[in-house]
Write a protein that binds this DNA or RNA. Structure first.
Lengths: 156, 156
DNA sequence: TAGATAAGTTAGCCATGGCTAACTTTTAAA
DNA sequence: TTTAAAAGTTAGCCATGGCTAACTTATCTA
């Protein structure tokens, strides 16, 4: 039986993976959740700095769909993590580390979105799903997305 | 400029999506996070019931990579949510609703894994990434995965 | 330039989902 | 059948990331 046929299993046949491997997978997901906040913020801050020259908490709150105290709290966490530079009541800027992270996230985001679009998914859905998916895409999988995308683009 | 070329943007060019659409996307991700626990548990419980005839907290804890009090707490939440049936110190079983959710999750899981494998990703990575990705795949995207998979399987 | 409005912060609340320590119940073995 | 080990629960802790209410600071405008 080849790998690919795994999708053809009967609905009730259990897949018995090694417990430790499974546990490691779940641990990876939990770790990804811990970096999601930081990634979402720096990515958005980078976008806003490009568009406006600075990132303001109001706009961050609006675009993330959260209230401003939440932004204040999370920005102070990012500052503690050395990703962000800022003085109270002033706009927010990225440190070198923050800029680096933001760029990596944005590259990844674009690849995921472009990949989903190449499957024929509409733009709204691609953007929305990418927002959740991107945090769980390993470098291996990202490379595979890139590769498939290139193949699609040349073959079309 | 076509959709697909979006990946070819310069690293510093901002993509200005509508703020409300962006906010909605993040809200969707936050909602997905809220159902993740339930989905992971019922999926695993269904697997264990198949393999062993019942699901025991020890094994759930082992496979999720968490400690047993965490399992106890979460199982009681699932019970309150009507997904699980169980008496203290006894094995755990699924209600009809739980079984239904579990099957949907497992179907989705298998499609995501098979799809990643079809891109040439190794099995360990596919399983690990799928664990995180699956919770953020809309029905639209899942259909696109299925479609791409069929195309791949027939064309190979 | 004074005062109103908008923006940002602080304090304190809540649920989630981890954890350890200590206890109870069940199971298995001597 | 008694007792030791394994399994499960309870209580209470922690960090995360939401929220509202109340306050402070900055900005804009009359």
């Amino acid at each position: 039986m080849t790998k690919l046929q795994s999708q053809g299993r009967e609905p009730f046949e259990a897949v018995d993976r090694a417990p430790e491997a499974q546990a490691e997978g779940f641990a990876t997901v939990r770790q990804a959740h811990e970096s999601e906040m930081a990634e979402d913020y720096v990515e958005l801050i980078a976008e806003l700095i490009e568009l406006r020259g600075e990132a303001r908490p109001v706009e961050i709150a609006e675009r993330l769909g959260v209230k401003s105290p939440t932004v204040t709290k999370n920005i102070s966490r990012l500052k503690a993590a050395g990703l962000v530079r800022r003085e109270p009541y002033r706009a927010i800027f990225l440190t070198d580390a923050g800029r680096e992270l933001a760029e990596a996230c944005r590259r990844r985001h674009r690849i995921v979105v472009a990949f989903l679009l190449s499957l024929g998914i509409d733009e709204e859905t691609a953007e929305r799903d990418a927002e959740g998916i991107e945090h769980h895409v390993s470098t291996t999988t990202l490379e595979a997305f890139k590769h498939a995308l290139q193949k699609f683009q040349s073959g079309k």
